[in-house]
Computed example of a mutant assay.
Amino acid sequence: MPNRSETRVITPALLRDWALPVPTGGKEHRGTVLVVGGSRFTPGAVLLAGVAALRAGAGVLQLAAAESTAAALSIQVPEALVIGLPETGDGAVAGDPGDRLGELVGQADVVALGPGLNDIDETRALLRLVLDAAAPETPLVLDAYALGALSHQPDLLVGAGRPVVLTPNVTEARHLLGREPGHDLDAEARELARRYDAVVSLYGHIATPAGECWREESGDAGLGTSGSGDVRSGLLAGLLSRGATPAQGACWAAWAHAVSGQRLVPRFGRIGFLARELLDEIPHTLATV
């Protein structure tokens, strides 16, 4: 592992020396991932994150999204248990969704919160529900609007000792930092990890609260496409469900996300491939390490 002042480049050799756990037995040994998100107008974000978790090796998938989308999601992802959550008049997931969501959070091995959510106040309530219902050792992946909610309560994770990974893009990093990020994203990832007491994966720049830092350098412009971040957060959740540590899962996910994009370039060029096309590349990419 690197010292606190060193940033290591993520390579296949580094990952081979930091091999993922290889679960044995049935699907229960690969864990249950619960993805919470998806407004009436953005159910695809939950779909992308959920399928990415399965492609990364999760054993059981559960999706919780706006109730108006639940039937369609259950058909699109027949491998998943899908529950519908109450909606506001604007189609956002309501922040007081009832006891069923709390039960699922309490039973899940990994919870990913944020893909497709679109109301900051309702998301703040959902974040509190997840933190209250999840066991202290349950890994959490916070993405999209969940990061905006966290920025309103920056001390929420500090000192809790929870295994949490934050997956901001640059816009979300601005909300978390309270300022525009600088050009040194290694330093910004370290600052966010220290400030929020969580592992941070910022556009392939990964940092821990202790100051360890890694960088993924093979990502290309094609990854800057709608839904790509949802794939990355779900991929990360799937790796955590297999038993990866937060920093290990974040490094593997950043690399697998980038290289899955590279594998699409011969067919589509550097730009123009779709986020959903990354999904089928994930298992082979992971297997090549």
Rank of each mutant, 00 (worst) to 15 (best):
N3R: 15
R8G: 00
V9H: 07
P12H: 02
R16P: 01
V22N: 00
G25Q: 10
K27F: 05
H29Q: 15
L34H: 03
G38E: 11
R40D: 14
P43T: 09
V46N: 01
G50Y: 02
V51P: 03
A52G: 05
G57K: 13
V60W: 05
L63R: 09
E67S: 13
S68N: 03
S68D: 08
V77C: 15
P86R: 04
P97K: 01
L101E: 06
G106P: 14
V111P: 11
A112I: 04
L113N: 07
D121I: 14
R124N: 09
R124I: 01
L127N: 07
R128L: 04
V130R: 05
A133E: 14
A133L: 06
A135M: 08
P136W: 04
P139N: 04
V141P: 14
Y145A: 13
G148S: 12
Q153Y: 01
P154I: 08
L156G: 07
V158S: 06
V164F: 00
V165M: 05
L166Y: 10
A173W: 08
L176E: 10
D184L: 10
R190C: 02
Y196R: 09
Y196F: 13
A198F: 06
L202Q: 03
Y203K: 14
H205I: 10
A207H: 09
T208N: 02
G219D: 00
L223E: 13
G224D: 12
D230S: 03
L235C: 08
L240E: 02
A244G: 14
T245N: 02
P246R: 08
G249R: 11
W252T: 06
A253D: 06
W255P: 05
S260E: 10
L264T: 04
F268W: 13
L274V: 00
R276K: 12
L278P: 13
I282S: 01
T288Q: 15
